[in-house]
Nucleic acid binder design. Structure first.
Lengths: 214, 214, 214, 214
DNA sequence: TATGAATGAGCCTTCATTCAT
DNA sequence: GATGAATGAAGGCTCATTCAT
């Protein structure tokens, strides 16, 4: 119960931090802002986080951590290769579309100059990068993707593309549906990672399952 | 000459700002830091820039402006379609590899939460985005690219991919050559934007051909 | 037993406070530090002491109180005059050498600017001062000391000398034996308070004779 | 002129600091208090002193430094031995009586637990201690003082006695004249450091020169 | 134009103290 | 009595910006 209480308050603070950071950015937000958003006293935040930097690092850990924990099994349930890549893209966009505040906070702070924050965020991101690379590797093994594919580079294209799509959407004020871009983006990327025409075993399917009943 | 002097001092300040922002980030740098790097007095900066925000906005304007001014003719000298897309990718990577400080300053501050900065940078970026989209449109017209290509989306993939490649390189401490990634990245993106296999009119050339007369 | 329990806990806290104050000083120590040193909860301290200031005042009371209670009979067992003065000096140094933490806490906080603490400590110190003055007065009466001695002033020399000796020893990191200074210091002070050469009834004895039967 | 301006402002701040520290103590005073006492803005203090600790250290340096610079020649003008010792005592008391605020600030902060302050003050104090020890050594050589005198110990008695006299006077609210204690204190100390009766070459003189025309 | 001292608002962080359990 | 989470006032320090020279 004590641990539950602690987790609850911690979560309360992190939720407030997402909102405030998402709106004003890390440097534009004060601890007092976050406390007031959370409905608690300033000092209380320091019972759960030692420094302001820790807040945003914990935010990333929590967000990506939850995402990965929830996402990995769903991904691995898909056949390696195109289906799994498609799922990844859909999940990524779905995740951010599902929470505008998280998206805003995430996109803005992904690159932060403060070295402490940078170093705190890096290992979390790396996990995600590795997951993408594994999907690419498995796709090569499954003969869906070009056997000569530079996996590191392709990962950058995949992540960079996803990231830019989400960032544009955030900056546009969420004026359109992210999920609608999942299929077209997948098709683009799928063509990039697929080998020559002869390797086109899989037709590019729709992500219907995400859009409604098959 | 007065205007020349003014431009000189302004440039001096901006050059100092690139270095300082590139190293410590916008929020980690003070006006005093920049003045000292430029070898001038703090107050002098305010003779050329009204606010700190203006500095970084001017930085982006100058950087991308120069890049576009220098790059456009070189791009348009290439045939529309794959060659021009390849040139774009090469130029982008070449540009950042040529100046580590510019690269650092650019990558870190591309997404900045401060609304004033955000709004100041946006129109500049948009120019670049539009240039990319034009390359894509021209490539469709030239029958190199898929006629059904979603140009807005493809632009995001192209820019996102380039951006992620540069960011990774910056975060790695510039430990490898960016230019070496130009060809492989182009091949990936080229496959993405090309239509079906039947449209492959152009073989994928080497980038060396871009650097001088064959 | 309830009172006993209370006294025990109070003592536990004071003992922890000596250690913590001795190491970090009053202003460098938090109530939480003391509680943690005592192995109790922060709030518990407030069941025994209303304010942080009370802690250090109680500390002085306890320390000097115990010292006086234990010391007075031992002092009064000595003949008035030189022997008793010698005993005082020996006891003072012995007391602090016996407990480095007490010494550190005492020396540093003897002069504290906080008016509440100052006023709280003063009456306790005054007791000690009066005891010294009585020793001097008795010594005059016993014809050991100069009949024209300014007792108030001599008290300051005696206490100031003792205090400075202990402070130096504390600041040196207790690198030498305090007790070894008892005799030499006594000799100096004895000469100061003794009248002309003709009054030198007592030869200056060794301190060892004070520690048990010869 | 620039250096003069700087010194002036620095001095202004230090003077304000003496007053504020003297009244409320280091820990009871805020930088804002000092700034307001000096009639300047908070931030201005940081143009002259990097940290709050530096303020009090500079205070000691300035005070004791000035005292030593002014005092040394006056001391050395006196014949070694009793006259010089007498002069020292007179000067010490004279110095503090001359500036109640300095006295208050000095006495309270001589022993400060904060390690940075402690270490900053130490070398300054050591200078004073060494000066006293030299006076004692020279007095031995001059055959005024006991050749067997433990100079280190005697220094502690001299300084401790002076210090306690000043502290008592400060705590009493400066209710009496310090200078009136110079002669009696000298007499006490002189007897302490003088050897046996046979060494009493010098009669104990009055410090008349300080009190008026001989 | 150029300077750089001065300003003062603002923010992170600490910690004595309280209080519900 | 005992706990320790919560409070919120307070303070050190930074730094964008101004302005007298």
């Amino acid at each position: 119960m004590s641990s539950n209480t602690k987790n609850n308050k911690e979560l309360l603070i992190l939720r407030a931090a997402v909102r405030v950071f998402g709106q004003s950015g890390y440097h534009g937000s004060s601890i007092a802002d976050i406390a007031s958003e959370a409905g608690i006293a300033t000092g209380t935040i320091y019972l759960y986080f030692k420094k302001k930097e820790e807040l945003i690092i914990a935010l990333f850990q929590r967000l990506i951590g939850d995402y990965l924990i929830a996402g990995r099994p769903r991904l691995e349930a898909m056949p390696a290769g195109f289906p799994r890549l498609q799922k990844l893209i859909a999940m990524h966009l779905e995740f951010f579309e599902g929470d505008h505040e998280v998206a805003a906070a995430f996109q803005v702070h992904l690159r932060e100059a403060n070295p402490e924050i940078r170093e705190g965020i890096r290992p979390i991101l790396v996990q995600y990068f590795e997951m993408i690379e594994h999907i690419l590797l498995d796709g090569i093994e499954a003969k869906d993707f070009d056997p000569g594919l530079d996996v590191r580079l392709a990962r950058k294209l995949v992540f960079g593309g996803l990231d830019e799509v989400v960032t544009s959407w955030v900056l546009s004020g969420h004026r359109y549906s992210l999920m609608n871009l999942a299929d077209p983006l997948f098709e683009l990327i799928a063509r990039a990672v697929r080998g020559g025409a002869e390797s086109r075993r899989h037709p590019v399917p729709r992500t219907d399952s995400l859009h409604g009943p098959a």
